[in-house]
Each structure stands twice: as structure tokens, then as C-alpha cells.
Design a protein around this nucleic acid. Structure first.
Length: 192
DNA sequence: CCACCGCAGCATTGTCGCAG
DNA sequence: CTGCGACAATGCTGCGGTGG
């Protein structure tokens, strides 16, 4: 089974470029390079992208849903993205990233939910986007050691947010108290 | 009943101060 | 200098309250 890798990241950018502009997906350096992250030694002017957030968030949740779907489908179960269940505090403006359920509906009952996943994933490698008239392509500029981005799983405030949401689900109802809640990320591991 | 407004929550990642 | 906690930034979307 294919886990998160460079090809998946390439697919995110090529797919997203079908309907988003390069400026929404990449930082532009003072040398006019389009990069996914600011390199560690970069000293020029910097900004913080907001426009990529929902795109990468949605992509990683979809990717995770597909992965889990392949794992549970033999059991007759379903992975559902963005599931809602008012009884356990999964409302319209705060749905579950991914759940495993006995059915594939967006509207769910607590009794059918076997597990809840909170996805905290993003781009791991750094990429340069070259936009030549004839062909565009993505060049890997190095791994997470070469850029400034800090993976979500290593950030305490990201984890607190995920844990806080888990607590909110836990205390929402007795029925939520037995549902496992899993935080899933794609942080690379050092020295492998 | 509907248009509008403010607030809260979603997402990710850069910045800054402090400790060691 | 590095690592870490706390805070900032901002587009999008849903919801509740209010005024007409």
C-alpha cells in the first residue's frame, strides 16, 4: 500500500494547479523562484501563505480517507470525509476530518461510528515550480531539513488544537466516550 | 421572510522571545 | 545556536441575531 511520498506531493501541486494559480500555492523568492517553503538559509523578504491552507488540508483529508477506505472495505465498512453528527459535537462548522463508519453517509449516528481521525498533514519536501511556456514541472529541492516549515505533528499548538477537539467530542455525550479518536500526521522521522 | 453583519471555527506556517 | 511555547496572519464558511 502506498503511503505518503514525493509522488503524492507532486500530485497535490499538479492537481491544484488545474484550478489555482501558482501564487496561491508557492512562495516567490527575491530571485523570482516559486518554492513550497522558504529555504533554511533564505534571507530575503518573506510572507506567510494562507491560500494554500484549505487546499492542502482538503487534499490530505481526502488522501487519508482513500487510504483508510482501502483498509476497511473488506470488513464492509466505510471511510467518510467530513462526517457530521450533532450528538457528539460534529457540526457543520466543525465536522470530523475522517471517520470509519458502518455506512457512508455524511450525516451520522454515534452507534455507527467506529473511529474518528483528525488529520494533521502537509507538504514534507521542498519543491520548486518551474513554469516554462512549453512545460511546467516540479523539482524537489530537498527534504524537511532544508526548509523552515515545521511539521504539524511536531508543533505543540497544533497538537493542542487536535487534543482540544478530541476532548470536546469526548465530553459531548456518553455515546462518544467509547469511540477511539486518532490523530494522523505525515511528519518525517529523523535518521531513516 | 430575507439581507446583512459580526463572531467563531476550519486550515497551515512564519515570527519572536526565552531558556539552556 | 537550537528547541520550544505562544502568538499572528488571513481566506473561507456556517450560524445566530437584528433591522426592514
Amino acid at each position: 500500500m502506498e503511503l505518503w511520498n514525493k509522488n503524492v506531493e507532486k500530485r497535490f501541486f499538479t492537481k491544484s494547479l488545474e484550478y489555482a494559480t501558482p501564487e496561491q500555492l508557492f512562495y516567490i523568492t527575491n530571485e523570482n523562484k516559486y518554492l513550497a517553503y522558504w529555504p533554511k538559509n533564505y534571507l530575503g523578504k518573506k510572507s506567510t501563505l494562507q491560500s494554500r491552507n484549505s487546499l492542502i488540508g482538503n487534499f490530505t483529508e481526502k488522501w487519508t480517507t482513500d487510504l483508510i477506505q482501502r483498509i476497511v472495505e473488506d470488513e464492509g465498512l466505510f471511510a467518510v470525509q467530513g462526517a457530521k453528527c450533532s450528538e457528539i459535537a460534529l457540526l457543520n462548522n466543525s465536522p470530523a476530518d475522517v471517520i470509519i463508519s458502518k455506512n457512508k453517509n455524511i450525516e451520522q449516528e454515534p452507534e455507527n461510528i467506529l473511529a474518528i481521525f483528525e488529520v494533521k498533514m502537509s507538504i514534507v519536501w521542498n519543491w520548486e515550480f518551474k513554469n516554462n511556456k512549453s512545460d511546467m514541472n516540479l523539482i524537489c529541492m530537498g527534504d524537511y531539513n532544508t526548509h523552515q516549515g515545521n511539521p504539524g505533528l511536531l508543533r505543540s499548538d497544533s497538537m493542542l488544537k487536535a487534543i482540544g477537539k478530541s476532548i470536546n467530542i469526548r465530553v459531548s455525550s456518553l455515546k462518544a466516550s467509547t469511540i477511539p479518536i486518532i490523530i494522523i500526521g505525515n511528519t518525517p522521522i529523523t535518521n531513516t
